[in-house]
Design a protein around this nucleic acid. Structure first.
Length: 107
DNA sequence: ATCAGGGCTACAT
DNA sequence: TATGTAGCCCTGA
């Protein structure tokens, strides 16, 4: 836990979930940005580890998180689920990637 | 206190 | 564009 994070009174998981919840429909965010917005710059892998623990029935938009290359970092069959959810929001992959310049969300 | 490992990244070939 | 290679930083053992 970090000093600046402690002042917020929350652990990394909570902070990451909170940011994830703000990612709007039809947009995506990278692991690195998610971590940074949660107060953990350069801790992209932390975001990954955290998301991996999400329950299957979560309401959070886990599928809107992709890597910095615009690619899905999940092994099949989860990658297929993520792709399907993204498409349902109008986000399609071309050559296995999302057009970050167009859909990347950054406040 | 240490250490390996993770849904990663940036940079160099 | 496609690898390879170092960093990064947190968590759990």
């Amino acid at each position: 836990m970090r000093a600046d994070a402690q002042t917020e009174g929350n652990d990394a998981t909570t902070r990451i979930y909170r940011v994830l919840a703000t990612v709007p429909y039809g947009r995506v965010i990278t692991y690195g940005d998610l971590a940074q917005m949660a107060g953990y710059p350069r801790a992209a892998r932390l975001a990954g580890q955290t998301l991996r623990k999400l329950p299957r029935d979560t309401k959070l938009p886990w599928h809107r998180v992709i890597n910095a290359q615009g690619r899905i970092s999940l092994p099949e069959p989860d990658a297929a689920r993520q792709r399907a959810r993204l498409e349902r929001e109008g986000i399609f992959l071309h050559n296995g990637r999302v057009d970050l310049l167009k859909y990347r969300w950054q406040p």
